[in-house]
Design a protein around this nucleic acid. Sequence first.
DNA 1: AATGGGGTCAACCGCCCTATT
DNA 2: AAATAGGGCGGTTGACCCCAT
Length: 277
Amino acid sequence: MGRQPCCDKVGLKKGPWTAEEDKKLISFILTNGQCCWRAVPKLAGLLRCGKSCRLRWTNYLRPDLKRGLLSNYEEKLVIDLHAQLGNRWSKIASHLPGRTDNEIKNHWNTHIKKKLKKMGIDPLTHKPLPTNNNPINDDPPQKPPKDQDLLHPPPRSICEITSEVGPNIEPPIDQVNNGFCTDEVPLIEPHEINLVSSTSSSSSSSSSSYEDGNSVNIFEDFLDLPCFDWGYGLGFGDDDDGIRSSSLDFLIGGDSDGTQYSSMVVDQECMNLFELL
DNA sequence: AATGGGGTCAACCGCCCTATT
DNA sequence: AAATAGGGCGGTTGACCCCAT
């Protein structure tokens, strides 16, 4: 027989997460690490589906997430990667540390698509839009490129396309990124992780509004919690072979507009502890 | 001030691949 | 090998916010 069902979905809560639920989930994962998601709601005392917990964690609560709009460079990288990978958002997100597939997908649909169309570029094919009276359908069914297509990209360089995006766009990725092609974008180093914790109420902060109307800065809670395992796959110095850095120190930082900085260090002892879990 | 429309994004749904028994 | 569940992923929805009228 197979595994046990994920959840029976009976009596489970749906909709926006409350601050209380977030705290429970965060403290559970910080204490126990990411394990079997099916067991998480039960063990954490949440009336949520394990899947919902996973989504909440990966898309919102993960401490290594960047918040706020994508930079010009990130946007360009997304366009570039989308030209190669199609709507494989998770693959695209894996090249942008601190960004989630959901976030990139949303940004694509709400910003980039329009931007490209405005510039006469078909967001699906990344080629110039036809100029005849046969405009491209808004959302025709899109086939993801086959692997062999990825190996043999279209003749027109995506750099040619993305270089048309606008005057604010940065130079082609291959030049900016120390000669890496987009499939070789290096993972961010632990010391480069910069978690912005703004006290403003803008949507680009780490604050979250809850259904009860409260707004909570999640990272304030993190600072009170012990060191923990970020788990594999979070991009903290993990390379493709699963090798982790011996320590993780990163900033919960800010910028020139007065946002405070503080640092959190996860040392080897802590890492060893969680190896055992 | 009211309201309608558009934009944004967190969260859910359902499919599919992989792992497990 | 087959059956089944877990987890990941892309698509979609709906609530909220902002802005123009």
